[in-house]
Design a protein around this nucleic acid. Sequence first.
DNA 1: CCTAACTTACTTAGTGCTCGGTAAGTGAGT
DNA 2: ACTCACTTACCGAGCACTAAGTAAGTTAGG
Lengths: 211, 211
Amino acid sequence: MSRADQPLHGDQPVTNRRERARLRREEIILIASELFAERGYRGTALADVAARAGITEPGLLHHFGNKAGLLLAVIERRDLDSEAFAMELLGMEPADRLRALPEFARRNRERAGLAKLFTVLVAESLEPDAPGHDHFVARYRALRAIVADTIRSAQEEGLTRAGLDPETKAAEIIATLDGLQTQWLLDPEAVDIVAAVESYARTLERDLTGT
Amino acid sequence: MSRADQPLHGDQPVTNRRERARLRREEIILIASELFAERGYRGTALADVAARAGITEPGLLHHFGNKAGLLLAVIERRDLDSEAFAMELLGMEPADRLRALPEFARRNRERAGLAKLFTVLVAESLEPDAPGHDHFVARYRALRAIVADTIRSAQEEGLTRAGLDPETKAAEIIATLDGLQTQWLLDPEAVDIVAAVESYARTLERDLTGT
DNA sequence: CCTAACTTACTTAGTGCTCGGTAAGTGAGT
DNA sequence: ACTCACTTACCGAGCACTAAGTAAGTTAGG
């Protein structure tokens, strides 16, 4: 009834059919993300994803070609979310970025699935010929570069002591956050991820400023 | 020909048959460790392990009951190695323990398989009903307790500043080492694990002493 | 000391199930 | 007329695991 249901007259190619297919793919990717996080890529059968999505297995493969294609689609989609966060961080003053870390942890805690997805997939991608390997290698290199650049510019502004190597410190920061997340995912009752990250942010501030 | 080939007279029950079986199990565990590290628990078929060990699949199951039994045997065996290292650390003066970290990293670098095994298995054990879950939960709790105790006693001796919470700091230290290891396993060319751990040990010393 | 009974470390053969993937349509949009 | 998002039907391979036997080593009894 409403205009939104119908394609507009003709000023834009509102391809209703393609749009519906795109939404369907998005839905499938979301479902696959959850399952991959819970059982890993190898532990998840296409049939599991298909059943939850209310589609047949060949229907699934029609959209993604094969199982690895589905994995790559999942990774790509989830990277968009992370990229959005990275952009958010880069938009801040360097001094404020540290303070954003606990907020990041808080957000991750509410969506444990996403965190689990990456932890599981990275571990399954350690071998060079794993389907997601190259992607995660590139991802970590980019992440380290972003953090290292942040440190470098903070050094130039005199906010951070000059004695440390930005690349090494970047790897260390990412490692700590990843590692805390893993411990929390394994044993949420024993590890308070938000408190741990808050504490680490303070440690890091002392470390970076040299006070 | 030599006496060693024959059972001794009778003062000890030198059960030749049992001993050979034990050695066989050890050999299988070693092979399974390698495969689990490379392809994960789920990604490894019993047939793969059996083939490399020169035994049939049912022969394998005769020793370990089922696949999960093999996994637990692998974890248990590898924990003995880690425990040996923990004991070594605990035998040192608290002040020397920090200096042992790079040596630990150096050792792990030479045997990347062991490191990879744990990274992969922990990720596969995040879900509470995974076969290794309880084991890794207990392992991390024990590890955190050991490190926290070390910090606590260093505080009592005045070697470490009083203002930090030992439990939280323990989780942070373990997280950093784990996270660095993961980055290195994923991309050995981009991450120098020994240099990174050396740098972190210095960071940590400043952090703990408050200088 | 010899041998019969038992235990143990396997093997061969096979089972039922699940897996990712394909071939060949169908029917509704465009 | 054509495309495209599917479905039904199917496939061969691989999976963990079992049943049943075998041969060698170990132990107990006479």
